[in-house]
Structures are given as structure tokens and as C-alpha cells.
Design a protein around this nucleic acid. Structure first.
Lengths: 248, 248
DNA sequence: CGTAGATTTGAACGTCCTCAAGTCGAGTGG
DNA sequence: CCACTCGACTTGAGGACGTTCAAATCTACG
């Protein structure tokens, strides 16, 4: 349950530039002009941070000073209640921002844990606020990112509040394929970075239920599972499951 | 299930000023200087809008142009899945912002419905972005508000993903009392503005379960229920229930 | 004062959870 | 190369919690 606390390794002297990043059309600097990008290169991204698998980028209670853009790798964010229960609240991949939770009280409210060896771009928050007042489209993009995070959250609430196990897993898998596809990878092959228990925590299910549902999907010909390697054979069928078009 | 579509009534000529508002220490302009408040008065809040009970302030799919601060009254936001299921994603009271969902794609993603006759302050988003670049503390406060919305969402995910019916209702009631208390009202008396079905939708439960759980809480001496009037007699007991300190 | 909607309560049912056993695969050391 | 072990995963059986269906109250509002 408890991960050992590895600290992230800072690599302050590597040359970090958004202009050259293959994620710049997905990440924070979407829509910036070349000149604006140069400003961002010079003033915004402080450095890249390596986070080993199992290590936490930050933990609940730590002082907030920066947000992070995932460059390589895969993260989960989770929140714990007093009595020790843990809820995974999201999974983050390349180009997605982590740490927005800390802005409100200047203290992180979640844990962010790397699910594989990862690298993130550290974006000091003071700098971001300052630069956002100068570059209009940066401000707008930042607001869009936060807004979409809110919309995403509400989608998860819909999932947790009103869907059955099969629908939840279908929604989860389709969401993953969409995000992977947007990054130029095959939408039909997924290598899961997280355990059944973590999927279950995110979906409000027990790991056994997740496992059983995977098996059922495979029996129904929707996909094939081998450990963490998923091959989606019938994405339309998964989508129909979500839309309630169950024809029994 | 479907509410009739009443349109909000605009009252463009009423004199709206944050400086005089009793919610200014809770709402968006927290921490602004007197001079900054005057700027906000002059340029930010366009007008107040009356929304009758059952009417929607906006609906999913509508073009986004402004966020709204609740001045008087009570709202719910909800999201619908394709197959007609509806999930209430939040309840908003005085000083809270509605409409942040629209920033991402310039289109509203939720419905916002008044649960009683209400009035909101319309804050045109273009103006807000512009003024935020001029007034630093306004920008910071706006970011804080969005961040806290994200944190709140994750709290709801924890609730929906890992709590039992009794814990969900206890969390819901305690959250309400805290917010009501912060506005200067009694923390022990709540007049619910929403139906059992709406509470259930928010908590991922059926209305019958909500009703039964209220009855059980009353039998256990935690509170007394009469219709929508709740009197909390044992807030500590409710909190213990949440913290998992069940002593059977 | 009557009707429609909201709420309460009961009983049977179903989904998912709990507990338990067994399988599989990666990493380790002989 | 092969046991060995540990953790992750799968699968089964029984039970718990919340749902579904149904009926009875109660309230608000016209």
C-alpha cells in the first residue's frame, strides 16, 4: 500500500526547450507563436525532473511551487482519506499537466506517483502566472487546461455515480485509446501501466471485479488480454456498451 | 426528468457593485484592494441575472461567454450521458462560481439549474481574462477558485469511489454545514434545496437509499429530519462515521 | 380541497464485494 | 538451466449492500 519515498532527481543543466518538443501541440504551449515559444523556452520551463518508477513527484501536504508537464512516462494521482482508504483520481501521460491541485492553498492535496520511469518539465508557478499576464494565448491555454481538467473530473463522476462495472471499464479503455491515439500511437493496442488494483481504485471497483470484467470482455470478443497487454478488437462494441445499446 | 426550458431574465440596468456585496470575502474578488475593487465594479460584472426555480442558467451545448457568481439562491450542475442517465456533479451557493466548464471549448458541457429563485452576477469571460492580466490578485484568485474546484472534484471521486451509503450522506451533510456556516448561518440547521433524487444522483445512490439513510441517522440520534428540514444533533458522530470510527 | 409530486417504507433481487484457492511470470540464487 | 519465491493476476463460492418494484403517506400548490 505505502510506496517508499524516493525523491525525484533534478537535472538542472539539461537544455529544455518547448520549441523542439514533440508534445508542443498537445501540451501547455498550444497555439503560441514562434516568438512566444522562445519566451517560454527562456523563462518558463526551469528544468526536467526524472522520477523513477514507484517514486512520487510530490505528496499531499508538501509545499506547492510548480506544476509539471509530463514529458515521458506515466503517472497516477491519488488522494487518501483519513482512515487509510486511497482513491486514484487520474492517470497522466505525455503532455498532460500535474499539480494544479496545489494552486488553491499553495500546498499539494494529492500524491503524484510515477508508474514507470518518467521525466517531467518543471514549470515554476510564479513564472507561469507572470508570463501569463504577458502572453495572452498562454494565459488562455492555461485556463483551457484547468477547465478541461474540471470537465474531465465531472466525466469521472458520471462514471462513478451511475455506471455498472462493465461500462466503467469500457469507458476507461476507450478514454485511454483516444489519448494514446492523439499521441500518434495505435488505438487498438494498449500496454497498461497500472495494476488491476489501481484501475479498480480509479473506477470504484475491486481488483477482482476488474479482472473478471476483462475476462468477460475477452469472452465476448471485444478484446484480448494478456497480463497488461490489451488488444481492442471491437471498439464499436465497447462504445455500444457505453451508450447502453445492450441487445440481450 | 426533463425540466422545461425557462430562459433567465436579464436585468441590465441594475447597479451591480462588488464593493458593497456581502459576499465579497467569499467570492471572486477576495483580497482585492479598494482601488482594484472599483475597477472590478466598473469593468467586470456586467449585470445580475434572475433565474427562476427550475430554470436553467445555461445548458450543455450552449455557447460559452461568461462565468457566473451566485449572489442569492442555489444551483445544481449536472451532466447527462447519451443514454439519458443524469449525474448531478455539484451544488452551488452564494459566492461560488458557475460556468468554468465552458472555458475549455467555449461551449458549456453541463447544465446549470436553479433549485430556488436565484440571482447570479454575470462575469463576461473576455473581460475577466483581460482584467486578470492587469490585476494580479484577481488573476491569482481566479486560479485559486479553479484549483479548488479541481480539488473538490477529487474529493467527490473519493466519496463516489470508496465510500458506503452512510459515509456518503454524512460527507455530503458535513460539507453543506461547513459551507453554510462559512456564510454566517447556523451549522446545525439545514434547509435542503434539492430533492432526495438529486441528492442521490450526486452521491451515486438511489433516492430510496438516501431516504432510508436519513431515517437511520435519525434513529441513531445523529440528526432529525422533517421533509427537507434537517437538524444536526451530533455533528461529531457524523464526522466519526466519515473517519471510519464505527464502534460496533 | 383535490391532485400531482415527493417521500417513506417494505420485500425480493442482483451486482459487486469478501474470502479463499489456484495460476502465471519475473527475478534470484544454486 | 532449473527450482524457488514473491507479487500480480485469475477464478470460484457465498454474502452484503444497495437496487428494484410496489404500496402507502405526506405535502404543496393551484
Amino acid at each position: 500500500m505505502d510506496h517508499p519515498v524516493y525523491r525525484p532527481l533534478h537535472t538542472p543543466h539539461c537544455h529544455v526547450v518547448c520549441s523542439d518538443c514533440n508534445l508542443r501541440e498537445i501540451c501547455l504551449p498550444v497555439g503560441l507563436t514562434k516568438g512566444e515559444l522562445e519566451l517560454v523556452d527562456r523563462r518558463l520551463v526551469a528544468d526536467r525532473v526524472k522520477v523513477a518508477r514507484g517514486a512520487s513527484l510530490f505528496q499531499a501536504g508538501e509545499r506547492f511551487s510548480a506544476v509539471y508537464a509530463v514529458w515521458t512516462g506515466f503517472f497516477k494521482t491519488c488522494i487518501a482519506s483519513r482512515d487509510g482508504r486511497e482513491q486514484v483520481t487520474g492517470f497522466q501521460m505525455g503532455g498532460e499537466l500535474i499539480g494544479l491541485d496545489g494552486i488553491g492553498h499553495r500546498v499539494h492535496e494529492f500524491d503524484a506517483v510515477a508508474l514507470e520511469d518518467s521525466q517531467v518539465c518543471r514549470i515554476p508557478y510564479e513564472e507561469l502566472e507572470a508570463l501569463a499576464t504577458e502572453i495572452n494565448s498562454l494565459q488562455q491555454q492555461f485556463h483551457r487546461v484547468m477547465s478541461r481538467e474540471i470537465v474531465r473530473n465531472h466525466g469521472v463522476m458520471l462514471l462513478l455515480g451511475s455506471m455498472h462495472a462493465e461500462e466503467r471499464l469500457a469507458a476507461f479503455l476507450l478514454n485511454l485509446t483516444h489519448r494514446i491515439h492523439a499521441r500518434g500511437f495505435s488505438a487498438s493496442d494498449i500496454l497498461l501501466r497500472m495494476s488491476r488494483e489501481e484501475i479498480g481504485s480509479f473506477l470504484g471497483l475491486k481488483l477482482e471485479t476488474v479482472s473478471r470484467t476483462f475476462s468477460k470482455f475477452q469472452a465476448d470478443g471485444l478484446l484480448s488480454v494478456r497480463h497488461r497487454q490489451i488488444h481492442i478488437t471491437d471498439p464499436v462494441g465497447l462504445q455500444k456498451l457505453l451508450d447502453g445499446e445492450t441487445t440481450p
